[in-house]
């Protein structure tokens, strides 16, 4: 039985605990960042910090429920203690935080995984399989357009915990990071980024243009509102020299309907977030330390570049060392 310390805002922590409860080989050792009432409801001890939780328990892993960049202290404390950790991307929003976490993980006993739960959805997995099988030939332009936030579960469960981001651009980057992760997973490393962001009133918006090392291009547009919930929208299109793959929100919502509402079909343990947590457990259970102390680095590196591009108004080239 693997003991997990869960960290993050209550809604996200509850979502994760609900999934761990469905696994036979996982138990919640402690909670950080939640109220006493929440901890009592879950039935696990509450701690003030990850360091405290790790000192008081025999935890095998620390699960940051949301973007790691918002919970940098938790990640650092886990890695300092040599305990494996997972989080949603991005695990950092600036170069210093990025470099600090990578060196901490590389020099110590711990490791960090920061995959987007998207990777564990059947939809994205099928798209990637099709691309790998040559369904569209070589990628020309990948376009992703997304409106956030995403209350509730279902196909949007990848985004639990993002509302904790303090700054609109950080929130936009936290949403964008999931798409950057899937793009890199599907089409390879990103070489160059250019982005613009604007905030105001009900909505904040970012658009980013990516150039892949292998030559294709991608755009990600994210519209965010932390106050007003717009109709959830997503439009994903991969155009290659031999065809196109496309889906939108209708393709993800129509499997089960109750009047005007859309029902969730997959049980929580078997949805994309459940898949991400399952993969974390399996990696903990592995005999060998993962080959890379931080996996994946690329999407968070791309997000650091997006923020830098927004701030400096210029394209940013990603190098092996960092985002210059």
């Amino acid at each position: 039985m693997r003991q997990i310390v869960a960290v993050g805002p209550e809604t996200a922590v509850r979502a994760h605990v609900e999934r761990y409860d469905r696994f036979d080989d996982a138990a919640i050792a402690g909670l950080v960042g939640v109220s006493e009432a929440c901890a009592d409801g879950i039935g696990a001890p509450r701690y003030e910090s990850v360091s405290d939780a790790l000192r008081e328990t025999d935890a095998d892993g620390v699960d940051v429920c949301g973007p790691g960049a918002v919970h940098g202290d938790a990640l650092r404390e886990a890695l300092d203690a040599g305990v494996p950790a997972r989080c949603d991307p991005p695990f950092a929003l600036d170069g210093d935080a990025f470099d600090g976490l990578v060196s901490l993980a590389s020099d110590g006993e711990g490791w960090l995984t920061a995959y987007s739960p998207h990777r564990f959805s059947r939809l994205y997995d099928r798209l990637r399989t099709d691309v790998d099988a040559g369904a569209i030939g070589s990628i020309g332009v990948a376009r992703i357009k997304r409106t956030a936030p995403f209350d509730g579960a279902g196909w949007n469960s990848s985004y639990a915990g993002i509302s904790a981001a303090a700054d609109p651009v950080d929130a936009l980057c936290a949403v964008l990071a999931h798409d950057a992760d899937v793009l890199e997973w599907t089409f390879g490393a990103v070489e160059r980024v250019f982005a613009r962001a604007r905030s105001g009133g009900r909505y904040d918006h970012v658009h980013a243009m990516f150039a892949f090392r292998e030559g294709g291009r991608a755009t990600i547009e994210t519209t965010w509102s932390d106050e007003w919930t717009p109709e959830p929208r997503v439009d994903v299109e991969y155009s290659g020299n031999q065809g196109r793959l496309h889906f939108d929100e209708h393709d993800t919502l129509t499997a089960l309907r109750n009047g005007g509402d859309h029902g969730q079909v997959a049980p929580p343990g078997d949805d994309c977030r459940g898949g991400a947590l399952r993969a974390f457990l399996e990696r903990i259970e592995g005999e060998e330390r993962p080959p890379s102390a931080v996996d994946p680095e690329g999407p968070s590196r791309a997000v650091v570049a997006v923020r830098r591009s927004v701030a400096e108004g210029r394209p940013v080239t990603l190098t092996e060392e960092g985002s210059r």
């Binding site: 020309g140 332009v141 613009r196 604007r198 658009h207 243009m209 755009t219």
Partner: peptide
């Protein structure tokens, strides 16, 4: 990727990408 005179950002895809 463009900017408008009021400061708004403007992204456009005009590729010959339609199969």
């Amino acid at each position: 990727s463009m900017t408008l005179s009021n400061g708004a950002s403007f992204i456009m895809d005009g590729s010959w990408s339609t199969p």
